[in-house]
Simulated assay, not measured.
Amino acid sequence: MTTVVHRAGATLNTVRERGAVRAVVSQGIRGLSLPDGHGSWRGLDADVARAVAAAALGDPEAVQWLPTDPAQRLTRLVSGDADVATCNLSWTLGREAAHPVLFAGVTCYDGEGFLVRRADGMSSPEQLAGRRVAIQAGTTTADNLAAWFGRRGLRVEPVAYATPAEALAAYADGGCTAYVLDRIALAGARATLPHPEDHVVLETAISREPMALAVRDDDTGWFRVCRWVLQFLIGAENAVREEGGEQRAARTAADLAGGYGPALGLDERWAHRILDAVGTYGDIYERNLGPASGLDVGRFANALWSEGGLHYPLPLH
Rank of each mutant, 00 (worst) to 15 (best):
D255W: 07
D296T: 12
D267S: 03
A239N: 09
G258M: 14
V229Q: 06
R248W: 01
G245W: 05
H272V: 02
I274E: 09
A271V: 14
A214R: 08
P210Y: 07
M211D: 15
W270T: 04
V278H: 01
G259Q: 14
E209V: 05
R216T: 14
F223A: 13
R251W: 12
G258R: 08
G221I: 10
E209D: 06
G221F: 13
D219A: 03
D276A: 14
H272E: 09
F232P: 14
A253V: 14
I234D: 00
Y285D: 00
R241Y: 13
N288R: 00
P210W: 04
G244Y: 11
E246P: 00
D219E: 11
P210S: 01
L266W: 12
G279W: 01
S293P: 01
G298M: 07
P291S: 07
R251S: 14
F232H: 11
D276F: 06
G298T: 06
G258C: 13
T280C: 04
L213P: 03
R287M: 03
A212I: 03
N238V: 02
F232A: 05
I284Q: 00
V229W: 04
D267N: 08
G221H: 11
T280N: 10
E286S: 07
A263D: 15
T220G: 02
L266D: 01
A239K: 06
S293W: 09
G235V: 04
T280K: 07
R224F: 04
Q231C: 09
A254T: 02
E237R: 11
L264V: 05
G244A: 11
S293F: 13
G265H: 13
G290D: 08
G259E: 14
D283H: 04
A254Y: 12
R227G: 05
Y285L: 08
F300V: 02
L233Q: 03
Q231E: 15
Q247T: 15
G235Q: 03
A292M: 06
